[in-house]
Design a binder for these strands. Structure first.
Lengths: 195, 195
DNA sequence: ACCACCATGTAAACGGTTACATGATTAC
DNA sequence: GTAATCATGTAACCGTTTACATGGTGGT
């Protein structure tokens, strides 16, 4: 979005909301669910950004909002894409430069591994492996589904390929790294790095 | 950093600055250079965050700052890690949970590929390939160096492995994606997606 | 002429995360 | 009893990004 028209700019939560609404009408809560299922490995957003985004889209006439009464629950607000919203989504998509950023505290930690106790480094790596392994399995399951459009498939396949490579790399180089920092420790004992 | 002591929290530019200063005294400008060389593929920071971070670290006594006069240039400010800074770095590193986040406008675009003109999608993929290919080459060169500590090597190797997988995947599945969205177009013509 | 490099900083804008606030239902 | 699911929203906080401000050197 950014500004009034769709200039070149970063993808924001508003555009993503318009995007998931092309799949059908949804509540804010359901949109969050889709974000988790479909985007979580390459784009994150919480309620704190989704609800305000939806309110703004409604204000701009890019979505309509219909309240649905429920017994024993607060009212649902079901959002639907308008024609203007569909046009805006397209403009935004066409104007979005394809960035791809990684922000990895994990790799920073690995970069400074020689400053840390080897056992700590080993624990961190194990933790990442434990986190990634089930994700790979999930992406594999996800790609067996027949209800996916080509883009979803491509994005999921990408995630699968990259995560797989990451897992393989980390598993194959863990021992090497730990040994190397162990040796360093003997050569340059660092009083501050004790535990 | 976050707060006074090193609680569990996100890695920030301040910690990274302390980290690169373990490699030797540096100016803000040189730190930016190191960020580009060593971290750019998993952590970004510009002058707008580095200079204020350095000022804050100085205020906290975690680095010292020595001004060096230069002729025909503004004075340099050379920063050096203090013992307190070294300790704080270690605390921060030990307290940092190993997160790994990807934010990819590229994959969002691919996810919604069926809404876009196939030629546009193809162009985006080509652009990513053109961006990644030289980076792989650079990482390969970087890993031939002998002046790297084990952690740098591990991080660079990781980047190389993952980028390689990404490139391979994207190259192998580009045609498949383009064909699939071309077919979709025939089946469900979308007046709004024309170009 | 123009761009890249060296060199440092400030200030506003922007957007996302986190915590707060509320509350019933269902399953373990 | 405790946690997860359903359901919506606000407000403060935090950190990054971007634009602004300045200015000489050296190469094409």
């Amino acid at each position: 979005m950014a500004g009034t028209a769709g200039e070149a700019s970063g993808m924001d939560v508003k555009t993503l909301c318009l995007g998931v609404l092309t799949e059908g009408d949804k509540t804010g809560y359901e949109i969050k669910g889709r974000f988790e299922e479909a985007f979580s490995h390459f784009f994150g957003a919480g309620f704190g950004s989704i609800y305000p985004a939806l309110a703004e889209l409604s204000r701009l006439g890019l979505v309509t909002c219909r309240s649905v009464e429920q017994d024993k629950r607060p009212d649902k607000k079901v959002y639907r894409l308008t024609d203007a919203g569909r046009r805006r989504l397209l403009d935004a998509l066409l104007a979005t430069p394809p960035r791809h950023k990684v922000r990895s505290e994990f790799l920073v930690l690995m970069y400074f591994a020689h400053l840390l106790p080897p056992a700590h480094v080993a624990a961190i790596i194990d933790r990442m492996v434990a986190q990634w392994a089930p994700l790979v399995a999930e992406l594999d399951r996800c790609m067996d589904g027949t209800d996916m459009n080509p883009g979803m498939r491509f994005a999921a396949g990408y995630g699968r390929a990259v995560l797989g490579a990451a897992l393989t790399y980390v598993r194959q180089h863990k021992a090497e790294l730990i040994e190397a920092i162990d040796e360093r420790r003997e050569l340059e004992p660092n009083a501050l790095a004790g535990e």
